[in-house]
Simulated scan of single mutants.
Amino acid sequence: MKVEAWIFVICTVFLVLVTPAYWFVTDAGDSGADWTGTSALVMTTLLTMMVAMYLGFQAKRMDARPEDRKDAEIADGAGELGFFPPYSWWPLWCGAALAVMTFGVAVHAWWLFIIAGMLGAIALCGLVYEYYRGEHAH
């Protein structure tokens, strides 16, 4: 986790340096030319700092993983890596429902938005409860 925390610390430092430079180059201070980009960079800086702090705190609380230790062997990383879900059609239907909802808003067809929202709710329930029924039930 320490490596991941350092990656986000480096990104935060980069953004701390780039944000004032962007603000100065776009002349947002005098004429208000581009507050949008400056605001986006400030928020991105704060978000990367938040992730870096979280990963740093978690790295202190965790035991060192094999990839974090300099004296680790390849065999130290052997074993189960975690749970990986099998194939699923539910994300496709969730994405399709969201696409139709967005299309309904774009063309001011609220009836289409409502129908797609109901179908999206069904698809989301199917995605959430996928491992409670069927062949992949736990």
Rank of each mutant, 00 (worst) to 15 (best):
A28I: 13
G29V: 11
G29S: 08
D30M: 13
D30R: 11
S31E: 00
G32D: 00
D34S: 10
W35A: 09
T36K: 15
T36R: 15
G37Q: 04
V42E: 02
T44N: 10
T44K: 11
T45D: 04
T45F: 03
L46W: 06
L46Q: 07
L46D: 02
L47Q: 05
M50G: 15
M50C: 14
A52W: 00
A52E: 04
Y54V: 06
Y54E: 07
M62I: 12
P66K: 13
A72Y: 00
A72R: 12
A75R: 06
A75I: 11
D76S: 01
D76M: 02
G79E: 00
G79Q: 04
E80T: 13
F83A: 13
F84I: 15
F84R: 13
P85Y: 05
Y87N: 11
Y87E: 12
S88N: 07
S88M: 08
W90S: 07
W90N: 07
W90R: 05
W93E: 14
G95N: 11
A96S: 10
A96M: 11
A96K: 11
A99H: 07
A99M: 04
V100F: 05
M101P: 12
M101K: 00
F103M: 10
F103L: 11
G104S: 01
V105G: 10
V105A: 13
A106L: 10
H108Y: 05
W110K: 06
W111E: 03
W111D: 03
M118K: 01
L119S: 01
L119R: 05
L119K: 06
G120N: 01
A121M: 09
A123E: 00
G126W: 00
V128T: 13
V128E: 10
V128P: 02
Y132K: 04
Y132D: 08
